[in-house]
Protein backbone atom coordinates (compact mmCIF):
# COMPACT_ATOMS: atom_id res chain seq x y z
CA UNK A 1 0.00 0.00 0.00
CA UNK A 2 1.33 3.41 -0.94
CA UNK A 3 1.76 6.01 1.77
CA UNK A 4 -0.62 8.84 2.39
CA UNK A 5 1.79 11.31 0.79
CA UNK A 6 2.24 9.14 -2.29
CA UNK A 7 -1.49 8.85 -2.83
CA UNK A 8 -1.90 12.59 -2.31
CA UNK A 9 0.80 13.29 -4.88
CA UNK A 10 -0.86 10.95 -7.37
CA UNK A 11 -4.25 12.57 -6.84
CA UNK A 12 -2.72 16.00 -7.35
CA UNK A 13 -1.10 14.80 -10.58
CA UNK A 14 -4.48 13.43 -11.74
CA UNK A 15 -6.00 16.89 -11.43
CA UNK A 16 -3.39 18.01 -13.97
CA UNK A 17 -4.45 15.27 -16.37
CA UNK A 18 -1.49 12.99 -15.70
CA UNK A 19 -2.63 9.61 -17.03
CA UNK A 20 0.45 7.83 -15.77
CA UNK A 21 -0.30 9.03 -12.25
CA UNK A 22 -3.81 7.69 -12.63
CA UNK A 23 -2.41 4.30 -13.60
CA UNK A 24 -0.15 4.34 -10.57
CA UNK A 25 -3.02 5.41 -8.31
CA UNK A 26 -5.10 2.57 -9.70
CA UNK A 27 -2.33 0.06 -9.10
CA UNK A 28 -1.81 1.28 -5.55
CA UNK A 29 -5.44 1.41 -4.45
CA UNK A 30 -7.67 -0.76 -6.64
CA UNK A 31 -7.28 -3.97 -4.62
CA UNK A 32 -8.40 -2.20 -1.45
CA UNK A 33 -11.37 -0.58 -3.15
CA UNK A 34 -12.30 -3.77 -5.00
CA UNK A 35 -12.25 -5.64 -1.69
CA UNK A 36 -14.71 -3.11 -0.31
CA UNK A 37 -16.99 -3.30 -3.35
CA UNK A 38 -16.97 -7.10 -3.13
CA UNK A 39 -17.71 -7.03 0.60
CA UNK A 40 -20.69 -4.73 0.13
CA UNK A 41 -22.09 -6.28 -3.04
CA UNK A 42 -21.04 -9.91 -2.66
CA UNK A 43 -21.19 -10.17 -6.43
CA UNK A 44 -18.13 -10.07 -8.63
CA UNK A 45 -19.68 -8.73 -11.78
CA UNK A 46 -21.42 -5.89 -9.97
CA UNK A 47 -18.31 -5.11 -7.94
CA UNK A 48 -16.31 -4.82 -11.17
CA UNK A 49 -18.83 -2.44 -12.69
CA UNK A 50 -18.89 -0.32 -9.56
CA UNK A 51 -15.10 -0.24 -9.33
CA UNK A 52 -15.00 0.92 -12.95
CA UNK A 53 -17.36 3.78 -12.15
CA UNK A 54 -15.49 4.60 -8.96
CA UNK A 55 -12.23 5.18 -10.82
CA UNK A 56 -13.94 7.23 -13.49
CA UNK A 57 -15.36 9.34 -10.68
CA UNK A 58 -11.98 9.60 -8.95
CA UNK A 59 -10.35 10.87 -12.15
CA UNK A 60 -13.03 13.48 -12.71
CA UNK A 61 -13.20 14.61 -9.09
CA UNK A 62 -9.56 14.41 -8.04
CA UNK A 63 -9.52 18.19 -7.79
CA UNK A 64 -12.15 18.09 -5.08
CA UNK A 65 -10.00 15.92 -2.88
CA UNK A 66 -7.54 18.63 -1.99
CA UNK A 67 -10.20 20.78 -0.41
CA UNK A 68 -12.25 18.23 1.44
CA UNK A 69 -10.08 17.61 4.46
CA UNK A 70 -10.23 13.83 4.41
CA UNK A 71 -7.17 11.63 4.33
CA UNK A 72 -6.69 10.42 0.77
CA UNK A 73 -7.53 6.77 1.51
CA UNK A 74 -10.66 7.81 3.40
CA UNK A 75 -11.73 9.89 0.45
CA UNK A 76 -11.22 6.95 -1.92
CA UNK A 77 -12.83 4.46 0.48
CA UNK A 78 -15.84 6.74 0.99
CA UNK A 79 -16.39 7.07 -2.76
CA UNK A 80 -16.12 3.29 -3.23
CA UNK A 81 -18.34 2.44 -0.26
CA UNK A 82 -21.02 4.95 -1.28
CA UNK A 83 -20.98 3.75 -4.88
CA UNK A 84 -21.24 0.11 -3.80
CA UNK A 85 -24.06 0.85 -1.36
CA UNK A 86 -25.91 2.86 -3.99
CA UNK A 87 -25.63 -0.08 -6.34
CA UNK A 88 -26.79 -2.50 -3.67
CA UNK A 89 -29.84 -0.38 -2.89
CA UNK A 90 -30.61 -0.01 -6.57
CA UNK A 91 -30.66 -3.79 -6.74
CA UNK A 92 -32.96 -4.02 -3.73
CA UNK A 93 -35.40 -1.23 -4.50
CA UNK A 94 -34.89 0.56 -7.80
CA UNK A 95 -37.07 3.67 -7.53
CA UNK A 96 -36.21 5.06 -4.11
CA UNK A 97 -32.50 4.50 -3.98
CA UNK A 98 -31.88 6.09 -7.36
CA UNK A 99 -32.85 9.40 -5.82
CA UNK A 100 -30.68 8.84 -2.83
CA UNK A 101 -27.81 7.81 -5.02
CA UNK A 102 -27.97 11.06 -6.88
CA UNK A 103 -28.65 13.16 -3.84
CA UNK A 104 -25.49 12.11 -2.11
CA UNK A 105 -22.38 13.88 -3.35
CA UNK A 106 -18.79 13.07 -2.72
CA UNK A 107 -17.48 14.28 0.62
CA UNK A 108 -17.42 18.06 0.75
CA UNK A 109 -14.80 20.34 2.22
CA UNK A 110 -13.86 19.69 5.81
CA UNK A 111 -11.38 20.32 8.59
CA UNK A 112 -7.67 19.73 8.63
CA UNK A 113 -7.07 16.19 7.47
CA UNK A 114 -6.56 13.54 10.08
CA UNK A 115 -4.27 10.67 9.43
CA UNK A 116 -5.86 7.30 9.84
CA UNK A 117 -3.63 5.67 12.41
CA UNK A 118 -2.78 2.03 12.10
CA UNK A 119 -4.64 1.45 15.32
CA UNK A 120 -7.79 3.09 13.99
CA UNK A 121 -9.59 -0.19 13.42
CA UNK A 122 -8.81 -1.40 16.94
CA UNK A 123 -9.94 1.87 18.46
CA UNK A 124 -13.16 1.72 16.50
CA UNK A 125 -13.66 -1.91 17.35
CA UNK A 126 -13.19 -1.21 21.05
CA UNK A 127 -15.79 1.54 20.87
CA UNK A 128 -18.20 -0.73 19.03
CA UNK A 129 -17.76 -3.17 21.90
CA UNK A 130 -19.11 -0.53 24.27
CA UNK A 131 -22.38 -0.42 22.35
CA UNK A 132 -25.19 -2.90 22.83
CA UNK A 133 -24.52 -5.72 20.45
CA UNK A 134 -27.60 -5.09 18.37
CA UNK A 135 -26.82 -1.41 18.04
CA UNK A 136 -23.27 -2.10 16.94
CA UNK A 137 -24.61 -4.48 14.33
CA UNK A 138 -27.01 -1.82 13.13
CA UNK A 139 -24.25 0.74 12.54
CA UNK A 140 -22.07 -1.84 10.81
CA UNK A 141 -25.04 -3.02 8.76
CA UNK A 142 -25.75 0.51 7.60
CA UNK A 143 -22.14 1.11 6.58
CA UNK A 144 -21.12 -2.21 5.10
CA UNK A 145 -24.45 -3.65 3.99
CA UNK A 146 -26.15 -0.42 3.02
CA UNK A 147 -29.07 -1.14 5.30
CA UNK A 148 -31.66 1.63 5.54
CA UNK A 149 -33.74 2.54 8.59
CA UNK A 150 -36.55 0.48 7.09
CA UNK A 151 -34.22 -2.54 6.67
CA UNK A 152 -32.90 -2.17 10.20
CA UNK A 153 -36.37 -1.70 11.73
CA UNK A 154 -37.48 -4.90 10.02
CA UNK A 155 -34.37 -6.80 11.11
CA UNK A 156 -34.67 -5.77 14.76
CA UNK A 157 -38.47 -5.88 14.70
CA UNK A 158 -38.96 -2.40 16.11
CA UNK A 159 -40.87 0.59 14.78
CA UNK A 160 -38.88 2.79 12.43
CA UNK A 161 -38.80 5.74 14.82
CA UNK A 162 -37.50 3.56 17.61
CA UNK A 163 -34.81 2.28 15.30
CA UNK A 164 -33.79 5.81 14.46
CA UNK A 165 -33.64 6.82 18.12
CA UNK A 166 -31.47 3.77 18.90
CA UNK A 167 -29.14 4.40 16.08
CA UNK A 168 -28.70 8.11 16.76
CA UNK A 169 -27.92 7.38 20.39
CA UNK A 170 -25.47 4.69 19.33
CA UNK A 171 -23.74 7.12 17.01
CA UNK A 172 -23.32 9.63 19.82
CA UNK A 173 -21.97 6.96 22.16
CA UNK A 174 -19.58 5.88 19.50
CA UNK A 175 -18.45 9.45 18.90
CA UNK A 176 -18.02 10.04 22.59
CA UNK A 177 -15.89 6.92 22.91
CA UNK A 178 -13.81 7.74 19.83
CA UNK A 179 -13.05 11.26 21.05
CA UNK A 180 -11.88 10.10 24.46
Amino acid sequence: MATRDEIETLLAACTLGDKRAFGALYSATSAKLFGICLRVLDNRAEAEEVLHDVYVKIWHNAGRYQANGLSPMTWLITIARNAAVDRLRKRRAPAVSMEQAEARPDPGPGPEAQAVAASEAERLSACFDELDEGHAQAVRGAYLDGETYADLAARFEVPLNTMRTWLRRSLLKLKECLSR
Binding site: T74, T78, P107, L144
Partner: peptide, 10 residues
Protein backbone atom coordinates in the same frame (compact mmCIF):
# COMPACT_ATOMS: atom_id res chain seq x y z
CA UNK B 1 -16.01 9.54 7.22
CA UNK B 2 -12.64 8.91 8.87
CA UNK B 3 -14.12 6.88 11.71
CA UNK B 4 -16.40 4.77 9.56
CA UNK B 5 -13.74 4.16 6.92
CA UNK B 6 -11.87 2.26 9.64
CA UNK B 7 -14.64 -0.35 9.36
CA UNK B 8 -13.01 -1.33 6.07
CA UNK B 9 -9.59 -1.94 7.65
CA UNK B 10 -10.38 -5.58 8.14
Amino acid sequence: CEDLAALTDR
